[in-house]
């Protein structure tokens, strides 16, 4: 346990050199990390980066090509059946029975997870309250709107009180208010002592996590708390506001000392090497190129900047 310096709490997921290939495509490439009990652990990455494949391997849906992992102390290949009673899983698409009612779905999963009959009624009542589905018990799951569906799915995934929850893009396609409410439920679950492994491609959501792993093209690029990740960006981050954002990106890409440049909204975020370039220098160069510069200032990096930074450095490595 030489690498474990973050926390002294027990390790609940231990992943060692996990790899999964689909033909010639390596979806998850030699990934290693540990998750501690009670953590909210987020996997951040774009679609197709290997987040879901990792989760599916940890849940025993998919066998790894090489490497190993243990979940709740059980090996994911040899002891997959033992893991299943202790975890809850929510897939990125709605995976409940649309032609069953809210209550029938919950009852089905309660039976499948062998929830004690005497406790079942009370447990289902709690879940219906937690998900805010009171009054909708007899509604068909397929007729619920996006946000309600997600909550029902969370209810079904937690019907057996699992100590570890895998949530694969739980808020994809859900409106911002429902997303906010959903995260409140996740916090409540974490506060009650559960470990949450969540994947997302929403950068703002990753900020909710205790630790964030950034995965890109199957490779785990970075793993730290959101704050530490932001500090890891080397160089100085500038926010440049001009009247011609696209031209600005093109012009700055050719400038010396500009490590990385990307459009964020109407602004241009650029990472510079302070030894070679400065805010004033950029301002002057842009003006001489005929671009109307309204503001150039140093800002603190967001997770998006971290992500773009890591993704671009990765490209340099592979190029």
């Amino acid at each position: 346990m030489s690498g474990s310096n973050e926390m002294s709490t027990p390790i609940i997921i231990d992943v060692q050199h996990l790899t999964r290939a689909f033909g010639s495509l390596v979806a998850v490439d030699d990934v290693s990390f540990k998750v501690h009990r009670g953590e909210i652990f987020a996997f951040l990455g774009p679609n197709g980066s290997g987040k879901s494949t990792t989760i599916r391997m940890l849940c025993g849906i998919l066998a790894p090509t090489s490497g190993s992992a243990s979940v709740l102390g059980y090996d994911i290949v040899r002891q997959a059946e033992k893991i299943k009673q202790g975890i809850g899983y929510m897939s990125q698409r709605f995976a409940l029975y649309e032609d069953l009612t809210v209550r029938e779905n919950l009852e089905f999963y309660a039976s499948v997870y062998n929830v004690d009959k005497a406790l079942r009624k009370q447990r289902l009542g709690e879940l219906i309250d937690m998900a805010g589905l009171r009054g909708r018990e007899q509604q068909l799951a397929g007729q619920l709107s996006g946000g309600w569906k997600q909550r029902l799915a969370l209810g079904c995934a937690t019907v057996h009180n699992p100590q570890l929850l895998f949530l694969d893009e739980p808020t994809a396609g859900v409106d911002p208010i429902s997303r906010q409410e959903f995260w409140t439920m996740i916090y409540d679950l974490a506060r009650a002592g559960r470990t949450i492994f969540v994947t997302t491609h929403y950068l703002d959501e990753a900020e909710h996590a205790n630790r964030v792993g950034i995965i890109h093209e199957g490779v785990l690029r970075a793993l730290a708390s959101p704050a530490a990740l932001k500090q890891s960006v080397r160089g100085e981050l500038l926010k440049v506001s001009t009247n011609a954002p696209f031209d600005t990106v093109a012009a700055m890409g050719a400038m010396q000392g500009v490590l990385n440049v990307a459009l964020q909204g109407n602004d241009v975020h650029a990472l510079i090497d302070p030894a070679q370039q400065s805010a004033a220098g950029i301002s002057t160069s842009l003006r001489s190129a005929g671009i109307g510069v309204s503001d150039v200032r140093t800002v603190d990096p967001t997770l998006e900047d971290v992500f773009i930074y890591l993704a671009s450095t990765a490209k340099e490595h592979t190029a």
């Binding site: 897939s91 709605f94 995976a95």
Partner: peptide
């Protein structure tokens, strides 16, 4: 097709 099979596989059902 509806993804419910995947949800079933992660449960202890054999």
């Amino acid at each position: 097709e509806q993804g419910t099979l995947e949800q079933i596989i992660v449960t202890p059902i054999r």
